[in-house]
Deep mutational scan, measured.
Amino acid sequence: MTSCHIAEEHIQKVAIFGGTHGNELTGVFLVKHWLENGAEIQRTGLEVKPFITNPRAVKKCTRYIDCDLNRIFDLENLGKKMSEDLPYEVRRAQEINHLFGPKDSEDSYDIIFDLHNTTSNMGCTLILEDSRNNFLIQMFHYIKTSLAPLPCYVYLIEHPSLKYATTRSIAKYPVGIEVGPQPQGVLRADILDQMRKMIKHALDFIHHFNEGKEFPPCAIEVYKIIEKVDYPRDENGEIAAIIHPNLQDQDWKPLHPGDPMFLTLDGKTIPLGGDCTVYPVFVNEAAYYEKKEAFAKTTKLTLNAKSIRCCLH
């Protein structure tokens, strides 16, 4: 018999989150649709729960009410004593943790798909938090293969000092899905179709896995975050240069030392320094102006996964 890495157990509980950011409308629209008619997301033997994560922000069509829901799922915020004085999103995070967690427990949901849009030209993107997770690498390989020839990129946010504390991190297997470009507060049919297909293929993978299909060893190309880059700023902290036209919409493309990065209003080009080629992502993302992030630098690498098969009882 072929030796293989056996994944822990079959997958039982899956959640699909929309509206973690209330103005990213593809996930909101799909989740609302699936709450009314969820036939397309159901798979035999699998509990799939669509869920609106930040209903107040969705109602106002804004990213958040008090603070970013997708950055506060750490033990400090989840452990705060519940009171009306807490920011709305912290209270909501505790409610979500109660419903789908608790985080880092045996009772937490197996998989959470968190649906997002970006204003950046990132196409279909899967966000991975753990480079050693054979199950998710296999799932992402399946999704990428199923979507081809449509490109699907994998963004690895594993980093020693950049801690995200994402909404989906309460699950055993957290999956971020990011599709763009799409303006905030807008629905685009092409973007919706791409996100819908990503979810379909992900659920198909889980179904095949649960039925005992063995997935042979595989490898995927990923883009691992190195650092986030702020806009150049003046002495008052105001933005002093904008994304250069040569960099705009060039997510995932190589940016070499000396290539144009920013452009000042008086026409001066600010190039990339250093001696390493990087791959920019979230270029000129609207939501990241407040976070002082013009783009993120990534490096390209390959992740390998062992063969996996479900432990059938």
Score class of each variant (00 low, 15 high):
residue 90 V to L: 13
residue 194 Q to I: 09
residue 86 L to F: 12
residue 82 M to N: 14
residue 31 V to I: 11
residue 51 F to P: 05
residue 124 C to W: 04
residue 140 F to V: 07
residue 149 P to W: 04
residue 232 P to V: 01
residue 211 E to I: 09
residue 93 A to L: 12
residue 87 P to H: 10
residue 295 F to P: 06
residue 21 H to M: 06
residue 178 E to S: 15
residue 87 P to F: 09
residue 3 S to E: 15
residue 274 G to D: 08
residue 176 G to A: 14
residue 236 N to P: 04
residue 217 P to W: 00
residue 79 G to L: 11
residue 305 A to H: 01
residue 66 D to C: 07
residue 27 G to T: 06
residue 43 R to G: 01
residue 53 T to I: 07
residue 100 F to E: 05
residue 249 D to I: 04
residue 254 P to F: 00
residue 292 K to Y: 07
residue 13 K to C: 01
residue 255 L to F: 07
residue 285 E to R: 02
residue 157 I to R: 15
residue 160 P to G: 11
residue 33 H to T: 07
residue 302 T to L: 10
residue 46 L to A: 01
residue 87 P to S: 11
residue 190 D to P: 03
residue 198 M to G: 00
residue 146 S to D: 05
residue 198 M to Y: 02
residue 27 G to R: 01
residue 212 G to N: 00
residue 92 R to W: 05
residue 160 P to W: 08
residue 223 Y to Q: 04
residue 178 E to N: 15
residue 276 C to H: 14
residue 16 I to Q: 01
residue 237 G to Q: 07
residue 34 W to P: 05
residue 132 R to I: 00
residue 132 R to G: 14
residue 233 R to E: 07
residue 106 E to T: 13
residue 268 K to N: 10
residue 157 I to Q: 15
residue 213 K to E: 12
residue 295 F to A: 00
residue 35 L to P: 01
residue 10 H to I: 10
residue 134 N to M: 09
residue 18 G to I: 01
residue 241 A to N: 03
residue 134 N to R: 03
residue 229 V to L: 02
residue 58 V to H: 06
residue 167 T to N: 08
residue 235 E to L: 08
residue 228 K to D: 06
residue 179 V to I: 10
residue 32 K to G: 09
residue 83 S to W: 09
residue 269 T to Y: 01
residue 300 K to A: 04
residue 42 Q to G: 09
residue 65 I to C: 10
residue 224 K to W: 03
residue 13 K to L: 00
residue 268 K to R: 12
residue 65 I to H: 07
residue 270 I to T: 04
residue 11 I to K: 13
residue 52 I to P: 01
residue 204 D to V: 02
residue 211 E to S: 14
residue 147 L to V: 11
residue 145 T to K: 14
residue 159 H to C: 10
residue 301 L to R: 07
residue 85 D to A: 14
residue 7 A to M: 14
residue 310 C to F: 08
residue 236 N to T: 10
residue 292 K to R: 12
residue 29 F to L: 10
residue 175 V to C: 00
residue 161 S to M: 10
residue 107 D to S: 12
residue 226 I to A: 08
residue 180 G to W: 04
residue 87 P to R: 11
residue 228 K to Y: 11
residue 40 E to H: 05
residue 184 Q to N: 15
residue 106 E to C: 12
residue 132 R to E: 14
residue 122 M to H: 06
residue 227 E to C: 05
residue 179 V to T: 01
residue 75 L to N: 13
residue 231 Y to C: 00
residue 27 G to P: 09
residue 87 P to I: 08
residue 74 D to M: 11
residue 296 A to Q: 12
residue 117 N to F: 01
residue 247 L to A: 03
residue 273 G to E: 15
residue 233 R to Q: 10
residue 85 D to S: 14
residue 168 R to V: 08
residue 39 A to M: 12
residue 136 L to S: 01
residue 4 C to G: 15
residue 80 K to R: 14
residue 205 F to L: 00
residue 185 G to V: 04
residue 198 M to K: 06
residue 6 I to G: 14
residue 260 P to K: 00
residue 107 D to E: 14
residue 169 S to F: 02
residue 12 Q to K: 15
residue 232 P to S: 04
residue 32 K to P: 05
residue 85 D to P: 13
residue 259 D to Y: 00
residue 224 K to R: 10
residue 206 I to E: 01
residue 247 L to G: 03
residue 58 V to E: 06
residue 150 L to H: 12
residue 91 R to N: 12
residue 233 R to S: 07
residue 45 G to H: 07
residue 81 K to P: 15
residue 20 T to H: 08
residue 54 N to A: 00
residue 138 Q to Y: 03
residue 297 K to W: 04
residue 280 P to C: 02
residue 205 F to S: 06
residue 65 I to T: 10
residue 303 L to S: 02
residue 138 Q to N: 02
residue 267 G to Q: 07
residue 39 A to Q: 13
residue 273 G to H: 09
residue 288 Y to Q: 14
residue 259 D to A: 07
residue 187 L to Q: 03
residue 167 T to K: 08
residue 23 N to T: 06
residue 126 L to A: 02
residue 217 P to Q: 08
residue 35 L to H: 08
residue 54 N to Y: 00
residue 202 A to L: 02
residue 167 T to Y: 09
residue 266 D to H: 07
residue 200 K to R: 11
residue 313 H to D: 15
residue 147 L to S: 01
residue 12 Q to A: 09
residue 212 G to R: 02
residue 184 Q to I: 09
residue 20 T to G: 06
residue 195 M to V: 11
residue 272 L to V: 08
residue 210 N to E: 00
residue 194 Q to L: 12
residue 248 Q to Y: 06
residue 143 I to Q: 02
residue 156 L to M: 10
residue 178 E to A: 15
residue 244 H to K: 03
residue 83 S to A: 13
residue 235 E to M: 09
residue 180 G to V: 06
residue 220 I to Y: 01
residue 62 T to Q: 14
residue 310 C to Q: 10
residue 255 L to C: 07
residue 295 F to D: 04
residue 102 P to Q: 10
residue 302 T to C: 08
residue 161 S to H: 13
residue 169 S to R: 11
residue 305 A to V: 01
residue 31 V to K: 05
residue 111 I to M: 07
residue 214 E to Y: 07
residue 155 Y to M: 15
residue 290 E to W: 08
residue 228 K to W: 11
residue 212 G to Q: 02
residue 43 R to D: 00
residue 150 L to R: 11
residue 250 Q to F: 02
residue 269 T to D: 10
residue 283 V to W: 05
residue 138 Q to T: 05
residue 313 H to E: 15
residue 282 F to Q: 11
residue 204 D to G: 01
residue 93 A to H: 09
residue 204 D to S: 04
residue 172 K to A: 07
residue 78 L to Q: 10
residue 22 G to W: 08
residue 2 T to I: 06
residue 5 H to F: 10
residue 178 E to T: 15
residue 293 E to C: 15
residue 207 H to S: 12
residue 292 K to H: 10
residue 145 T to R: 12
residue 168 R to L: 07
residue 33 H to I: 00
residue 132 R to Y: 08
residue 103 K to A: 11
residue 166 T to H: 12
residue 23 N to L: 03
residue 121 N to W: 04
residue 179 V to K: 05
residue 15 A to K: 06
residue 234 D to M: 07
residue 10 H to D: 09
residue 102 P to A: 10
residue 299 T to A: 12
residue 35 L to C: 09
residue 170 I to Y: 07
residue 289 Y to T: 15
residue 50 P to K: 00
residue 13 K to H: 06
residue 58 V to D: 02
residue 254 P to L: 01
residue 254 P to E: 10
residue 205 F to D: 03
residue 84 E to F: 13
residue 258 G to K: 08
residue 155 Y to A: 15
residue 60 K to I: 09
residue 225 I to N: 14
residue 133 N to E: 03
residue 293 E to A: 14
residue 225 I to E: 15
residue 129 E to R: 07
residue 310 C to A: 12
residue 3 S to P: 15
residue 156 L to T: 05
residue 100 F to G: 05
residue 65 I to P: 05
residue 280 P to T: 00
residue 109 Y to T: 07
residue 106 E to R: 13
residue 56 R to N: 12
residue 190 D to T: 08
residue 116 H to K: 11
residue 204 D to N: 07
residue 126 L to N: 05
residue 269 T to P: 08
residue 278 V to C: 09
